[in-house]
Design a protein around this nucleic acid. Structure first.
Lengths: 123, 123
DNA sequence: GATAAAATACTACACCTGTAGTACAAGTCG
DNA sequence: CGACTTGTACTACAGGTGTAGTATTTTATC
């Protein structure tokens, strides 16, 4: 049971896009990332190449422009991410971490619903 | 209003200790960190020195063994931390981030109370 | 005051990370 | 075909990060 490799920040950003929709080409991904923060095409490409090497994504090289899809489930990656962060600074508790993340944010109605549902499910 | 500098992981771990109790000496901090993961005394010392330089902690050099305390409020650092993370992979929403952090964790009674209180306060 | 102990300062270094340029290959279009 | 376009592969590099060793300073202790 080899646990999911941890993506860097830039890689997590790309994974997030792929978890939402895949497969996507480098061009697609670059367009999406570049909309948020100006970044060069080859930068995204390099990350994808590193991610392929690291087993974070898989790619279909059949057609000329390669198509990428996640190779790791979102839950597993988040488990590692939040687990480590909780361990580092929140007494090991992901729930404590979540509470600190909430802070004094104001949730949307939907978010509040989801939260309420989560809490109620713990009954 | 210059925002708080972002600590690295190792630095956040140390800040967490200082936010709980301060001031602390390098020896104190090393003892605490080393209990969780074996690390050398000078490693902790180096981080403290970098953190001083970065304005993350302040130190009292009056006595021979320097005493450290946080120079940045916990809330501010977490705001940066969660803000960036939310921006990277959770659609910009810290609440969404919190929900993903909760995942399928099982909260303690206290934690559940806190969560419930947070939700109720949004009314 | 000589010696040991404890503390900090300074230096080092390998690896990671984000970023992007250059080179080369493969289609595309007139 | 020849020029242009699009795509990937390879290379590069500066700065950050975790880690720790060595040197130096300060204090206690006999």
């Amino acid at each position: 049971m080899n646990d999911a490799p941890s993506p860097s920040d830039a890689q997590l950003e790309i994974l997030d896009l792929l978890w939402r929709e895949s497969p996507l080409s480098v061009r697609d991904l670059h367009a999406a990332v570049d909309r948020k923060r100006s970044v060069s095409y080859t930068t995204v490409l390099t990350q994808l190449q590193r991610m392929t090497e690291a087993g974070l994504v898989e790619r279909d090289t059949a057609s000329r422009s390669h198509l990428y899809r996640p190779a790791v489930p979102r839950d597993a990656v988040e488990k590692g991410l939040f687990g480590k962060l909780a361990e580092t600074a929140f007494g090991g508790s992901r729930v404590t971490l979540a509470l600190r993340a909430l802070g004094n944010e104001t949730p949307t109605a939907d978010e509040l619903d989801e939260l309420r549902r989560w809490v109620d499910d713990q009954a």
